[in-house]
Design a protein around this nucleic acid. Structure first.
Lengths: 248, 248
DNA sequence: CGAAATCTTGAGTATAATCAAAAACGGTGG
DNA sequence: CCACCGTTTTTGATTATACTCAAGATTTCG
């Protein structure tokens, strides 16, 4: 079931427009982009390591994550995927997937055939550049996470990831008054940070005790943004947002 | 001083040819790619975080690394850059560099202007795809490293990085009879693995004791490749080498 | 040969893991 | 509305991995 979006509904258009102004042809092509839209319930794999997909997935709503598993069964989440992300765009050029992608909350996902994407890229070089840029920002986030996991201790490591989530969620309009929905469990945070669930729990309690966050159920509130940023040594430059306001 | 290479001398051509067969026009363009070649001595930054470079660097010979530094001055090396790599190709699309690149050993580096690269990409879509693919493989390596740093303990973490280095060095002809030059200090390994130098030293001794490596000075020898691969849980799929032999 | 960098060793400490179990929460069905 | 189930969060006690600090040995290179 191919489907189209109105401009303001398609997070991909919004994303590209934050980088450069689309002309009419480009916008038309993106608005008419054939996409198979599916709703996937929580804790389901969208694609698995080893797959050879013929399409890429655009997250339209919900939270997902990219992860890998060691031979001993330990999971490492290498990024959280938010609405507007195309977490396996890489599979357009790399035949075999080297990671899995799974939902964290129920997700609405749009699948776009690689053939369609290739056509789009051949016709519109600026869209090629925009998509390439997206994958480069992803890589930048991986680098930052690696520093986080490799070189920051518990409290700042956790604070840093929370800062990133808030900034990225704000960019897609999912933060209001320093509060947002965050359907990520402590176990999932543990897998993202290289900790155990128990340790994440203790760090969160510490963050609460120091007045850096209020986290209850799936609701996160940041009482003092500057303080949390300091605790997480957070500088949004690595997210490469052109929009200064979103990155602040 | 612009300069050209003969085909077999230019590691970029070799790299792209391992993915697809260049036609005459493409090869011509790459052979005549204007490049400013410079020799940089060891432990020097090639570019720094925060720079807004107008060119990218192609490593022609020597070892370099991509790294970031926390506010407290702790360094995380996020990848080793070997001959044929273009570690800051990203800067073609992302204005501000989010990492530094420094030499580990003396390096011969070719600088290519972004303007030149952009022209190349507009004229030759397959080269665009090839370069894009390069950045995607880099991202894949980041993901694998993140799992390594986040989820593997000392011995296997170290073994894994050594396996990767051997496979990548072999792909560029720098491994002979399971031995290679490895000008990486224990301190640099520590910064890549998220350990301290002291701990890396103890792990290396353990690897030696278990007969997994012989490492003396800048010379590495692998007595039993299968055993080292097992210790490091190493599977080269994430390097996305089309050449099966190189990846084995 | 001598200085600087790198590697190695030892002792004590800290951060985070492990194991186990209890409490709180969220959704479901009666 | 409440009892029940599974999931998630929380707590406690013990252990392991890796860090810190400090100094000595070795290698490298001018």
């Amino acid at each position: 079931m191919a489907s189209t979006f109105h401009h303001h509904d398609n997070p991909l258009i919004r994303k590209l427009e934050s980088i450069f102004t689309l002309n009419d042809n480009e916008r038309q092509a993106l608005e008419n982009l054939p996409m198979q839209i599916t709703v996937i319930r929580e804790d389901q794999d969208i694609v698995r390591e080893g797959d050879r997909p013929s399409r890429s997935c655009l997250i339209l709503s919900g939270f997902a994550c990219t992860y890998k598993v060691t031979r001993e069964g330990k999971r490492q989440i290498v990024s959280f995927n938010l609405p507007g992300d195309i977490p396996d765009l890489q599979s357009m050029h790399l035949k075999v997937l080297d990671n899995s992608i799974g939902t964290i909350s129920p997700c609405s996902v749009g699948f776009v055939n690689h053939e369609t994407l290739r056509d789009l890229c051949i016709r519109y070089p600026r869209i090629t550049a925009g998509l390439w840029r997206e994958t480069l920002v992803d890589a930048s986030i991986f680098r930052e996470w690696m520093m986080n996991v490799g070189r920051r201790e518990g409290l700042s490591r956790m604070a840093h990831v929370l800062c990133e989530l808030v900034v990225r969620l704000r960019a897609v309009g999912l933060v209001e008054d320093h509060a947002c929905d965050l359907p990520i469990t402590q176990n999932e945070f543990a897998d993202a940070l290289g900790f155990t669930t128990v340790h994440v729990n203790r760090i969160i309690q510490q963050l609460r005790a120091e007045g850096l966050i209020e986290l209850k159920g799936e609701r996160l509130f940041i009482p003092d943004w500057a303080k949390l940023k300091r605790a997480g040594e957070f500088d949004s430059a690595y997210l490469h947002m052109e929009n200064e306001r979103a990155a602040a």
